[in-house]
Design a protein around this nucleic acid. Structure first.
Lengths: 264, 264
DNA sequence: CTAAAAGGCTGACCCAGCGTCAGGGTCAAG
DNA sequence: CTTGACCCTGACGCTGGGTCAGCCTTTTAG
């Protein structure tokens, strides 16, 4: 006869595990001796080993009892289903491995390489770091929404950077960063920006942004910029009056703080 | 500005998930509006997406915060460690798959094919089903203790079954099953069994059992037989007096019930 | 204008498979 | 008699949220 520790040792499990199986009804509670200790016979060892054989093969505890009592064909069916589950879990982990590998390849975040390339280039061209950061966050939103389109747009935008007008826009925005909401110089900046946008607008500017972006996402992108750059909201308002802002894909609204957006 | 539902929708998670992240300190609690609703800005969406990017790659929540704030080299180190963990989890599941495949190949339990072959043969030779069952359980214990040795022993024993003496022993034991502890016919049976054992003992019988089995396991095997067959204990006692039982690897003790075995 | 649907709030319990105290009692040996 | 190794029950902890329950607020439809 065995105490619980002896039983556990024979089956290669912990005492806690045996008690857990009792509590779950997996292993029947044995008789107790005069002081309340559980007393096991050899069949308990056999039964416990049978249980462990199944759990060691990935069978969930909740199904062990049924499997031990099952006939050959239900057993085979259950095993097939468990094998299916195991394959699924392996697949999930392999996808995870691919993703974390992708994380170190990107900048450690949710960005495709095209976007990190674009951001590098903006920095190299002397664009203000605050603007680069806003771009960065904006691309995270875009990439989360539609990764492959974001990658294509980023590649396209990076190529346009070499051509002049776009980088001028960024420089103008950089100057606006340090101006207060009511600074009189904003008007002049708006003129310059309008000129840049005019020159941009020729060919593929429209394909950059503004198509395929639903209003909720567009509003989100706007508020991202407005939150970080106080003068941006007013600047956009000025641009709109010049009839340009609608072509940048920026919504901008009426230039006043938005009400909360509810639901999805 | 967004409510919690809007935030969740933008990041593709449930509202419950967002609140969970707040509770874990993963995502900072935002301001509340006049009625206690949480109000989020666009940066919260960005941050939530960054969190999801990591969790979707298998990073445990407890490590997400540290990883988001980490520099590139610690990030790379952490990612390497997480990848290691994922590989480990995949390995575990692949071992599980092999094992459940082995389960259907065996008899659905912890037995190697050699043992199931032996049991089949015993049945085919007309050995009492109760004895087959005791053998079955005994092999489970042996296989749990040292699988490869058990397989070898079983193969050896199966081969010996064709040669006569061993199967006679089993038949004798089968008759003993239905006798009470004090039946006078037990003495005659003991004589017949002693003769079988004598003939068995020549060559490799000693290699079957009795070597490499530690006392605790031997006692367990004994009590397995004694519990199922009431006359077995007395029979072994008689055999011992004839000086044979020691060669079967059966301990048998003094023929009286054992005291509990404690510890391991 | 009003009622209903849709969201939001907190708090609490639930899943697996045990690990790990806490706060005792029991047993064998020195 | 003490010490150390076991045993007992009961309860909380971990992961990553799901799912009520009970109540309040906002939006929408009639």
């Amino acid at each position: 006869m065995l105490t619980i520790g002896g039983l556990a040792a024979h089956a290669g499990v912990t005492v806690r595990t045996v008690r857990h199986y009792h509590a779950k009804g997996l292993l029947p509670e044995p008789e107790r001796d005069h002081s309340g200790y559980r007393v096991y016979g050899a069949e308990a060892v056999v039964e416990l080993i049978r249980i462990r054989t199944l759990t060691a093969a990935g069978v969930p505890l909740a199904r062990v009892r049924a499997l031990l009592d099952a006939g050959p064909e239900e057993f085979a069916a259950a095993v097939a289903e468990i094998d299916h589950r195991l394959r699924e879990e392996i697949r999930v982990r392999e996808r995870h491995r691919e993703r974390i590998a992708g994380l170190v390849a990107g900048d450690g975040l949710a960005l495709p390489v095209e976007v990190t390339g674009l951001l590098e280039r903006l920095r190299a061209l002397g664009v203000d770091e605050r603007i680069v950061r806003i771009e960065h966050d904006g691309w995270i939103l875009l990439a989360a929404h539609s990764p492959e389109q974001a990658a294509a747009w980023a590649a396209d935008k990076r190529d346009q950077l070499g051509e002049g007008p776009l980088i001028e826009c960024y420089r103008g925005l950089g100057e606006a960063l340090d101006l207060a909401d009511d600074d009189p110089r904003l008007a002049g900046l708006a003129d310059r920006l309008a000129a840049c946008v005019e020159r941009l607008d020729v060919g593929r500017a429209g394909s950059l942004v503004g198509e395929g972006i639903e209003p909720p996402l567009a509003r989100l992108l706007d508020s991202l910029a407005f939150d970080s750059a106080p003068a941006a909201r007013r600047l956009i308002g000025l641009l709109r009056r010049r009839g340009r802002a609608d072509r940048t894909g920026i919504d901008g609204g009426d230039g006043r703080p938005e009400a909360p957006t509810r639901g999805r």
